Structures are given as structure tokens and as C-alpha cells.
Simulated assay, not measured.
Amino acid sequence: MTRSGQGHHRERHDPHWVEWLTGLFSALLIAGLLGWVGWEALTRQATPPDLSVTILTTEKTSGGYRVAFDIYNTATTTAAAVTVVGRLREGDRVVEENPVIFDYVAAESKSTGAVLFANDPAGRTLEIRPAGYTDP
């Protein structure tokens, strides 16, 4: 902080209490984050991707039908090149099958996508499931 007196400026050498408070808060925050990251690194076990799909909506589009879905990965490991397959069945016969590929589905997260069908899913058995992934 600069003080002026009789046209002269001079710096204060003792820091203001706000500077001390800011420094203390920052140091505690950094120490807490480092402790949390370290704890997670030491105690969390890596589990292989555990993928599941929930169908959200079915909508008619100009080119057919769009079935939107969420894909969840509840594991602690990311899955890459995730393939999701959508199938329409009438009894035992597969009417239509279309894959969707996600670049990745991060650990403990969800992603959203859609399968596009030419045939109407109404009155048919609709199945959307994860079919495979690679380790990143």
C-alpha cells in the first residue's frame, strides 16, 4: 500500500490483513485438494467399464424414427470406442439393426445419443444395448 505525505510516496512494508487472509485461504484450499486427490489415488480401485443404456424418447423424423438414449458408465475406468447397437424385432426376426459409436464414455458419467431407424419402433420389440468398447 502506498502512502503519500507532502508529495512523497512511500510503500508500507507490512502486508494488509486481507493479503494474509487470502494467502491462508489459498494455502488451505490447495492442501485440501492435494489431500483429496492423493486419497482418491491411494484408495480407489480401478474397475472395468460397466455400461448400461436407458431409452429416453422415440420421435418421428423426416427420414424415419429417432430413438434417444442415455448411456451410463458407473465404473471408475473410461471406455473408448463404445459401440451401442439398436435392434427392432418382430418376434424372433430382426427387422432393423443400427450401431452407434461413442468416442468415449468417461468414468462415472453419462453420455447421450440416438439410434436412427427407417421402420417405426411402435408395436415392435426395441432393444438398445452396449455391444463393446476398447481401453483408452
Score class of each variant (00 low, 15 high):
His16Val: 06
Asp92Pro: 05
Phe117Met: 05
Thr54Tyr: 07
Thr47Met: 05
Thr78Pro: 03
Gln6Val: 03
Ile128Glu: 12
Arg12Ala: 14
Val85Thr: 15
Val115Leu: 06
Leu51Arg: 06
Trp20His: 13
Arg129Pro: 00
Ala46Asn: 13
Phe25His: 09
Pro99Met: 01
Thr112Ala: 15
Val100Tyr: 12
Phe117Asp: 09
Ser62His: 05
Ala79Met: 06
Ala31Lys: 02
Ile101Thr: 15
Asn73Tyr: 11
Leu116Arg: 07
Gln6Ile: 03
Gln6Trp: 10
Ala107Trp: 04
Thr57Val: 01
Val82Ser: 05
Arg129Phe: 15
Leu51Phe: 09
Lys60His: 06
Arg124Ala: 01
Pro121Val: 10
Phe117Ser: 02
Asp103Thr: 12
Asp14Phe: 08
Val67Gln: 07
Phe25Asn: 08
Gly5Trp: 06
Ser4Asp: 08
Ile55Met: 05
Gln6Gly: 04
Arg44Thr: 15
Ala75Asn: 01
Val85Ser: 10
Ala122Trp: 02
Arg66Pro: 01
Thr78Val: 08
Ala80Gln: 03
Val115Thr: 07
Arg3Met: 10
Ala131Ser: 15
Glu97Ser: 15
Pro48Glu: 12
Arg10Val: 02
Gly123Leu: 03
Ala41Gly: 11
Asp120Cys: 07
Trp17Gly: 00
Leu56Met: 09
Asp70Val: 00
Gly38Phe: 11
Ala79Asn: 05
Thr77Asp: 08
Ile128Val: 09
Ala118Lys: 12
Val82His: 08
Pro121Met: 06
Thr43Asp: 04
Gln6Cys: 04
Pro130Asp: 11
Ala131Ile: 00
Pro48Asn: 04
Gly38His: 10
Tyr133Leu: 00
Glu90Leu: 09
Thr47Val: 10
Leu42Arg: 13
Thr57Asp: 15
Thr78Glu: 15
Trp36Glu: 11
Asp103Glu: 14
Leu33Ala: 04
Asp103Phe: 09
Gly35Asn: 06
Thr74Gln: 12
Thr58Arg: 08
Thr58His: 05
Ser26Pro: 00
His13Ile: 08
Glu11Arg: 10
Phe117Ile: 01
Leu34Glu: 01
Arg129Ala: 15
Ala118His: 07
Gly91Asn: 12
Val84Asp: 13
Ser109Pro: 03
Asp14Gln: 07
Glu97Ile: 03
Arg89Glu: 09
Val67Leu: 07
Gly7Phe: 10
Arg93Pro: 00
Ala31Cys: 12
Phe117Pro: 04
Trp36Ile: 06
His16Ile: 04
Ile71Met: 10
Phe25Arg: 13
Asp103Pro: 02
Val105His: 07
Val53Asp: 11
Arg10Thr: 04
Val105Tyr: 08
Thr58Lys: 06
Ala107Pro: 06
Asp70Leu: 14
Tyr65Arg: 01
Ala114Gln: 11
Pro99Arg: 02
